[in-house]
């Protein structure tokens, strides 16, 4: 109980700086009260959600040019770091060999030989993964929000759930992707979010929740479902006459993020996303979705 109390205290302390959004965000929420002019060089994503706090995290799949830029930067950084990495590994191997000679135990893991592929490199010139600020909703009601977000055109993955700039839950075990076209509004439907610890009364989340307090670590593990939009889904009144269309979701295989507190999978979507044990199924093609590792 004391640890839980301390944990809560720390959580509150750490939330203090979270409220300050960083500049240079790729995603900009469109708020109510201003006439909306769609930019031809931007796409727009529209979704409704039951959440009033935590928000979906979206990843824009990098372009080829961005990946070249990233690869070049990573190689340059690796070249600089390689001598030190090699020395550290050699020191560990020497310590292991010395322990073996002395008949002593050695329980450290020897890392693989340093390589560009395994090099830990964070590139911060581009921000293609971001959450949405729920306080800047197009519509607010007592039981949810409607968000319209201006984004760069491209292909997106529903990547997880976050709050501010903190990544809570990665949908690393299966999710969906969609396309956002320039000058158009992609309707994602309704994104439903609930704590995985308590049983949700949302039908799509019934099987993805109710796992008890062991779902709570630094933060709770979030369960997520999507109710896709259909051609008959009405857009908000402010978007009357605008080019709004439901997205075509595609199943996305597993991927490693490595910087979230928890991992989960998006709830199955009929005709789009399914699971067979640990495999992610693309129900549009009846094939196993490709993993990103």
């Amino acid at each position: 109980m004391i640890r839980m109390f301390l944990g809560l205290m720390l959580t509150l302390l750490y939330f203090v700086p979270v409220a300050h959004a960083q500049s240079g965000d790729e995603m900009v929420e469109v708020t109510a009260g201003k006439p909306l002019e769609l930019r031809a060089d931007r796409a727009y994503i529209l979704f409704r959600t039951n959440s009033v706090g935590v928000a979906p995290v979206f990843l824009r799949i990098p372009t080829d040019a961005e990946m070249k830029e990233f690869d070049a930067a990573k190689r340059a950084a690796f070249a600089k770091a390689e001598p030190n990495l090699v020395k550290k590994r050699n020191d560990l191997i020497a310590a292991r060999d010395a322990a073996a000679k002395a008949g002593a135990t050695f329980d450290k893991t020897i890392p693989p030989a340093p390589s560009v592929d395994d090099f830990n490199f964070v590139y911060d010139k581009i921000r293609n993964v971001q959450t949405v600020k729920m306080g800047r909703a197009l519509e607010k009601t007592g039981d949810g929000r409607t968000l319209l977000v201006e984004v760069r055109p491209g292909n997106y993955v529903v990547y997880g759930v976050g709050f501010g700039d903190v990544f809570h839950t990665c949908l690393c075990l299966g999710s969906v992707s969609f396309s956002a076209q320039p000058g158009r509004i992609a309707d994602l439907g309704t994104i439903l979010i609930a704590s995985a610890s308590e049983k949700s009364d949302i039908p799509q989340l019934a099987d993805e929740t109710g796992f008890g307090p062991s779902m709570i670590g630094h933060v709770v593990t979030w369960a997520v479902a999507i109710r896709p939009a259909t051609p008959s889904t009405a857009p908000p009144a402010q978007l009357a006459g605008k080019p709004v269309a439901p997205v075509d979701y595609r199943a996305t295989g597993k991927f490693v993020a490595g910087f979230s507190f928890s991992v989960n999978r998006l709830a199955p979507i009929p005709g789009v996303l399914g699971y067979d044990r640990g495999k992610v199924l693309d129900l549009a093609t009846n094939k196993v979705a490709e993993n990103q590792y």
């Binding site: 799949i61 700039d165 903190v166 991927f255 993020a257 590792y293």
Partner: peptide, 19 residues
Amino acid sequence: WASVKLNRFVPWNDKPGRK
């Protein structure tokens, strides 16, 4: 709390770095 920051580059077909 120091390693879960969003607003970064994720290469998607590669493992993101750890910061």
